[in-house]
Amino acid sequence: MTSRVVTLGVNQVRRTLAVSAQVSLLEVLRNDLELNSPKYGCGLGECGACTVLVDGVAARACVIPACGVAGREITTLEGLGSLSALHPVQQAFIDEQAAQCGYCLSGMIMMTVALLARNPDPSEDEIRRELSGNLCRCGTHLEIVKAVRRAAELMAQNLSRGGAT
């Protein structure tokens, strides 16, 4: 198995790694970079537990070869905010108690960040459609939808105050 050296931007830090052509972005994030927010769920890109942002677009890390995103900017949940300054989407999920077991949470949050970047005021139908590919087995769907609406409000407030989202 031959390795290839790739450089990835991960959470605004350039990382250079030797990876095999077959290794997925999810494996690199979890095993090599020790980032635990993207989860291994189905391994087929169907459940959404591994969702990250690639150049700001939601993507399923379990089906993307790490070599395929060389030079691109990858954002995981760890790169959104900090304990002292949560991202508005993270804060909204806390405010609305939109987590139970937490397995789907990272993927739901990353999908929400991508959605609100494209559409800062989505309807409930748009929210449900956007998140329909992210599976939640605990039944917190109502709270998750409320959290997305709350995140949109928080982000609009930040913008009106001249802050960043």
Rank of each mutant, 00 (worst) to 15 (best):
C50T: 05
K146I: 02
A98G: 15
R149G: 00
V145W: 08
I144P: 09
I94T: 06
C136Y: 10
K146P: 00
A85I: 08
V145E: 13
S82R: 06
A70Y: 03
N119H: 03
K146S: 14
E130I: 03
R137I: 08
E143L: 12
A99P: 02
G81N: 09
E96Q: 15
A85G: 06
E143W: 12
A151I: 13
G79Q: 01
D125W: 02
A59E: 04
V57F: 04
C62L: 08
L77T: 13
L135V: 15
A98E: 12
A61S: 15
E124W: 02
A156W: 00
A152R: 13
L142P: 00
I64R: 11
D125K: 15
N134R: 04
L116F: 06
V145K: 11
G133R: 09
V145Y: 08
I144N: 08
R129M: 12
V57L: 07
I74Q: 03
R60Y: 14
E143R: 15
L115T: 12
V54E: 11
Q90W: 02
C50D: 10
A114R: 12
Q100I: 12
L131W: 06
E143T: 14
A147H: 13
K146F: 01
E78Y: 03
M111P: 00
S84A: 14
R128C: 04
M155Q: 13
V57Q: 13
E96M: 15
C67S: 15
H141Y: 15
G107S: 10
P122Q: 09
M108A: 08
V113K: 08
Q91W: 10
V69M: 11
L135N: 06
I127Q: 09
R60H: 14
V148G: 04
D125S: 12
L115Q: 09
I127P: 06
G68N: 05
E143A: 15
I94P: 04
V57E: 13
S132Q: 08
K146Q: 15
E73M: 11
D95L: 05
E124P: 02
A66E: 07
Q91H: 07
L135G: 06
P88C: 05
G133H: 11
Q100P: 09
G81I: 11
P65R: 09
E126W: 07
T75Q: 12
A152E: 14
S106Y: 01
L142Q: 14
A59C: 03
I109A: 03
C101R: 05
G68E: 01
I64M: 12
G133N: 07
A66Y: 11
C104N: 01
R129N: 14
A114C: 09
A85W: 10
E96W: 00
L80D: 01
L105A: 15
C67D: 05
R72G: 00
A99T: 14
L154T: 04
